[in-house]
Write a protein that binds this DNA or RNA. Structure first.
Lengths: 241, 241
DNA sequence: TGCAATATACTTGTATGTTAGTTTTTCTGG
DNA sequence: CCAGAAAAACTAACATACAAGTATATTGCA
């Protein structure tokens, strides 16, 4: 317990530390979707008062990571495929525009090198099964694309709304790491190949190819989500769709 | 003071009431950009404790309406043209996609009637200078478009991120209502006309025309913002751009 | 008067009571 | 053993108290 407290205190104020701790635990499935939480219990476990816990929870609510039922309880939000579809729609449309602009203007060689390096790191993390690092690097690569075409800050909202998508990615990696027999359908292997193909198309400034690859790549997340819902229905919202 | 308290208590829990009150005041320029707030003062004025005030402020922070400097103070955020440009980029790209899909599939007549009714209300509110109602109806119309093409929930994030845009619209209306001599450049008159033209193009299912109108319409906000920054520089962030 | 050190009055962050509402448990009567 | 009511144990919402940091005002000295 005191150990956790020490970790929390590191990042400036207590509330921020709790926020980051809980967010990480949720995205890594240490706290499972649907699991109930309690301000009192959390505060006791972390050795702090309820105030910073409330602050942290409040922020997680605004990101859709947890849900609070007044006077009844708090729980880790279940993954909503509806939210995921909304998210995917937005990212697809925006990212196609970003890539189209990059094809139109071309990319500086130094920028290409940064992308290549990111892709290399991704493969590395993939082979060593460093889940968190892989996901982080994937996000960073997409972020770079926004940055290179002058829409750096248009990525920002996604950092607030990607809770469900990150959990799907994480769950997917875990599932297909443990079931080696299903390695054939491991779509992360696929994702890395698609990234490579996107780079090639970008070099050739082939707008159509890039956009097509981008759509398929992002929409893959929805398919993964639907697969995973069949395996872990308890982790998913039963939204009518 | 007790009057305010009563208003707050109406909407369920105290914290929600304070949130809505403050948000409205900020969007309507009752609380000016850059104006400093104080948890203590607010709590005293509203006749409540600091807890619900803190909750409300926390939510407003996550929407970018206010900024908290730890141990130093809290202030209403200034309008950031950079954020506005990001926002406009996102809305333009998404909304063009939405309109393109609507052109492709066509719109049901009953849906058209809803849009027409909204436009009628807008003109009505415009003529009676009902600022809030006009802005609300404008948002609702755009929301309807998302809904009609099956991406209803893709609008949701905008409700969280539109703080700056709403303030620009509000400020614009106020400015050009008070200075009748500038009525010629009143771009809301323009906006209503553009809405009408967009409907016509939608009926004809003329994708190109709709998308062009849409771009111009939304990007108009950036121009308004830059105009207004010259008039009220104190309300704007001096972001390097 | 000018300046520096100190005291004071602010700010938000954190801790702890208290209240109101919900769920669960327990006791009581049949 | 079962049903139902009362009570106890939870929940988050709200109120208050304290701590830690910052800016300002004030005071004392040169």
């Amino acid at each position: 317990m005191e150990h956790k407290k020490a970790l929390i205190k590191e990042s400036g104020n207590t509330s921020d530390g709790i926020y980051e701790l809980l967010r990480r635990k949720i995205l890594e499935f240490t706290l499972l979707p649907g699991e109930t939480l309690s301000e009192n219990t959390l505060a006791a476990e972390l050795g702090v008062s309820r105030s910073p816990v409330r602050d942290a929870l409040s922020r997680l609510v605004s990101e859709g990571c947890i849900v609070v039922y007044p006077q009844r309880g708090t729980q880790v939000s279940k993954i909503s495929l509806q939210r995921v579809r909304q998210f995917v729609f937005m990212r697809t449309v925006l990212e196609k525009q970003v890539l189209a602009e990059l094809c139109a203007t071309g990319i500086a060689e130094e920028h290409f090198e940064m992308l290549e390096q990111s892709l290399m790191l991704q493969r590395q993390h993939y082979e060593t099964q460093s889940t968190s690092e892989l996901l982080y690097e994937d996000l960073r690569m997409h972020q770079l694309l926004y940055e290179f075409c002058g829409h750096k800050s248009a990525w920002v909202p996604f950092n607030m709304l990607d809770c469900d998508m990150l959990r799907i990615s994480c769950l997917q990696i875990r599932t297909y790491s443990y079931n080696v027999t299903m390695a054939a359908v491991d779509s992360w292997e696929n994702a890395l190949i698609e990234h490579r193909m996107m780079f090639d198309a970008l070099r050739k400034r082939d707008t159509q190819a890039v956009c097509l690859l981008c759509s398929r790549h992002i929409e893959q997340i929805v398919w993964s989500g639907e697969d995973l819902r069949r395996i872990y229905p308890q982790y998913f919202e039963l939204d009518i769709a």
